[in-house]
Design a protein around this nucleic acid. Structure first.
Length: 496
DNA sequence: AGCACA
C-alpha cells in the first residue's frame, strides 16, 4: 500500500469528496492541506475503491462508508488500482518504443516500455519512474478533449493490473556479436558449415561457427567481432534463403532465421564438420572429421576425448636445426623405453612416430613434451598427438627408422625408466637453465596445437585424410614464436 | 478496444 490509512482523515475525505467527480483532480491540489504525493495517490486509490464498490460516497453524511457490494450505477472508468504501469490499447501497427516514450514524456520519466503486446500486437505498456507521473497521464487524458494519439490514432490508457513491466527480453533481443541461426527447410541439415561461412563472411570476418541439432531444427552459432557486424548480417539475412548456387542442385530452399545469441565467445575445440575456429589455424582437426575414423569417443560432457595410444605422433615446427633419430630417441627416452621410431617428411615438415611399450608412458611423454621446443629460442617445437597405430612396422633400421627392441642392433639403446641423464645435443642454443617454465610448472602458458595436416601420413591407413578446409577459409596471421617454450633439460625429477 | 510470457 502506498499511503498510510491514517492519512485518510475525515477532514481529508470531506475535502476530497466533491473533487472525485472531477476527472482531473490534480488541478484541484491544495498544497496547504496535503503533499502532492499523498493527494495524487489517495485520489487514485479512492477512485479505485469507489469503482470497485468497496466505498460509496455519501452526500448526506459527507463521509465515505464502507459497503460490500451493490451499486446502482457501476462505474468502469477507474476499475484498475493505480500503477506506475499503464496499459495502452488500440495502438497503431508496429508501434515503437520511441513512440511510447514520446507519448509519456510530458507526464514524467518513462523507465520502461513493452510494445506489440497481445494477439493483435496493438497493445503496449509504459512504466513511469513514479506513480504520480502515471496518475498525471491518466488524469490528463481523462479530462482532455484531445485523446491520446499515436500517429493520429486514438489510444486508450488505463492503469495496468501489474505494478511493473517485466521485460522478457531474452538473449535473442539483445544485440551481440554472436548470431543464432536456424536453417529451415527439408534439407537444412545438409547445409555445410563452409556454405554458412561463405554466406556470413560477406558481412565481416567470421571468427567461429558451431552447428548443432536442436528441437528447433538445424542451428548454427556464428561469431563476429562485434555486435554491429553481427547486426548487419542479421538484418540482411534474417528470413532470406541461402542462394541456390551455393547449394547442391538437388537441395530444396533453406531459409535462415536469425536472432542474437547470448554467447559472446564460442568455445571451439576442434576443426570439424560441426565447428570451426577461423582465428586459430593450429586448432587440431577432430578425429570425427577425419574420414574413416571409427575412434570417435565422447566423454560424459559430450566433448570428444582423444583416444590414447602407446604410439605418439610428433610433428616438429620451426625446424631450424636438424632433428635426428638419435635426438628424438633421447628426448622421448626420458619418459620410458622407446621401442620404435619412424621418421618421415610430411608437407615440408618432419614428423615421427614414437612407440612406447604402454599407453601410460606415452601419456606422460605427451603431456610433458607437447608444445615444448627441443632447442632454445623456439626452435624445433614439438606437437604431439596420439597415433592410431599400436605397433609400428619397421622394415629397416636406418637414419629415419629404428626398432630398438631388436637386440644387437647397432645404435640401438633400449632405454629403461630411470635412465635419464642425457646431455643436450645438437648445434645451437643453450641447455635449459631453469629460468623458464620447468617440468613442475606444467605445459607452457600458451600451448600451440598441432597443425591440422598432421594426421596425414604414410603410416596411417588409407582414407584417413583430414577433411579439406573450405576454400576461402582465411586465417589471420599469427606469430608462431610468441608462444614457444624451450624444452627443459631432460631427466628431471618429473620422470622418475 | 480490454493486460505481456517462459
Amino acid at each position: 500500500m502506498f499511503v498510510s490509512t491514517t492519512l485518510i482523515t475525515e477532514k481529508f475525505l470531506l475535502y476530497l469528496y466533491p473533487k472525485l467527480e472531477n476527472p482531473n483532480p490534480v488541478n484541484l491540489y491544495k498544497p496547504e492541506l496535503f503533499s502532492f504525493s499523498q493527494f495524487s495517490q489517495v485520489i487514485a486509490l479512492l477512485r479505485f475503491l469507489v469503482a470497485a464498490d468497496f466505498l460509496v460516497l455519501s452526500t448526506d453524511l459527507g463521509l465515505l462508508s464502507e459497503m460490500a457490494s451493490v451499486s446502482s450505477q457501476p462505474q468502469f472508468r477507474y476499475t484498475q488500482p493505480p500503477s506506475k504501469v499503464l496499459h495502452l490499447r488500440n495502438l497503431p501497427w508496429e508501434c515503437t518504443e520511441e513512440e511510447l516514450i514520446e507519448l509519456g514524456k510530458p507526464f514524467g520519466k518513462v523507465v520502461n516500455t513493452k510494445c506489440n503486446v497481445g494477439a493483435n500486437r496493438n497493445q503496449a505498456f509504459i512504466e513511469f519512474a513514479d506513480l504520480n507521473q502515471a496518475i498525471a497521464m491518466i488524469s490528463y487524458y481523462a479530462s482532455s478533449s484531445e485523446p491520446a494519439q499515436v500517429r493520429g490514432k486514438t489510444v486508450y490508457l488505463q492503469y495496468s493490473n501489474r505494478q511493473e513491466i517485466v521485460n522478457n527480453k531474452t538473449a535473442a533481443d539483445v544485440p551481440g556479436n554472436v548470431l543464432l541461426v536456424t536453417i529451415e527447410g527439408a534439407d537444412a541439415r545438409l547445409v555445410s558449415i563452409d556454405v554458412l561461412h561463405l554466406v556470413f563472411s560477406a558481412f565481416g570476418f567470421v571468427h567461429k561457427i558451431t552447428t548443432f541439432e536442436k528441437t528447433a531444427g538445424f542451428q548454427a552459432l556464428v561469431q563476429f567481432s562485434d555486435a554491429e557486424t553481427a547486426t548487419s548480417a542479421k538484418d540482411a539475412l534474417d528470413g532470406r534463403s541461402i542462394p541456390r548456387y551455393l547449394l547442391p542442385e538437388h537441395m530444396g530452399p533453406c531459409t535462415l532465421r536469425i536472432t542474437y545469441s547470448g554467447h559472446s565467445d564460442l568455445s571451439v575445440k576442434f576443426q570439424s564438420h560441426r565447428s570451426r575456429d577461423y582465428t586459430n589455424p593450429y586448432l587440431p582437426v577432430a578425429p570425427s572429421a577425419v574420414e574413416g575414423s571409427g575412434q570417435a569417443m565422447v566423454g560424459l560432457d559430450g566433448k570428444r576425448l582423444e583416444t590414447e595410444s602407446n604410439v605418439l605422433l610428433a610433428s616438429i615446427e620451426n625446424m631450424q636445426y636438424a632433428v635426428t633419430l638419435d635426438v628424438l630417441h633421447m628426448v622421448f627416452s626420458a619418459f620410458g623405453p622407446v621401442q620404435k621410431i619412424a621418421m618421415f617428411d610430411k608437407n615440408g615438415g618432419l614428423q615421427a612416430l614414437i612407440q612406447y611399450p604402454d599407453t601410460q608412458t606415452a601419456v606422460v611423454a605427451k603431456e610433458a613434451l607437447e608444445g615444448h621446443c627441443i632447442y632454445d629460442g623456439g626452435f624445433c617445437k614439438l606437437h604431439i598427438s596420439y597415433s592410431r597405430h599400436t605397433d609400428l612396422s619397421i622394415k629397416v633400421n636406418n637414419d629415419r627408422s629404428r626398432d630398438y627392441t631388436i637386440p644387437n642392433t647397432p645404435n640401438a639403446q633400449p632405454s629403461i625408466l630411470g635412465q635419464q641423464s642425457v646431455p643436450m645435443v645438437g648445434p645451437p642454443g643453450q641447455p635449459y637453465n631453469g629460468s623458464q617454465s620447468g617440468w613442475g610448472t606444467g605445459p607452457p602458458a600458451v600451448v600451440q596445437s598441432m597443425p591440422m595436416q598432421m594426421h596425414n601420413n604414410v603410416y596411417m591407413s588409407s582414407g584417413s585424410m583430414p577433411q579439406q578446409m573450405a576454400p576461402g577459409m582465411q586465417f589471420p596471421s599469427h606469430n608462431s614464436s610468441q608462444s614457444t617454450t624451450t624444452l627443459p633439460a631432460y631427466g628431471s625429477d618429473r620422470c622418475q
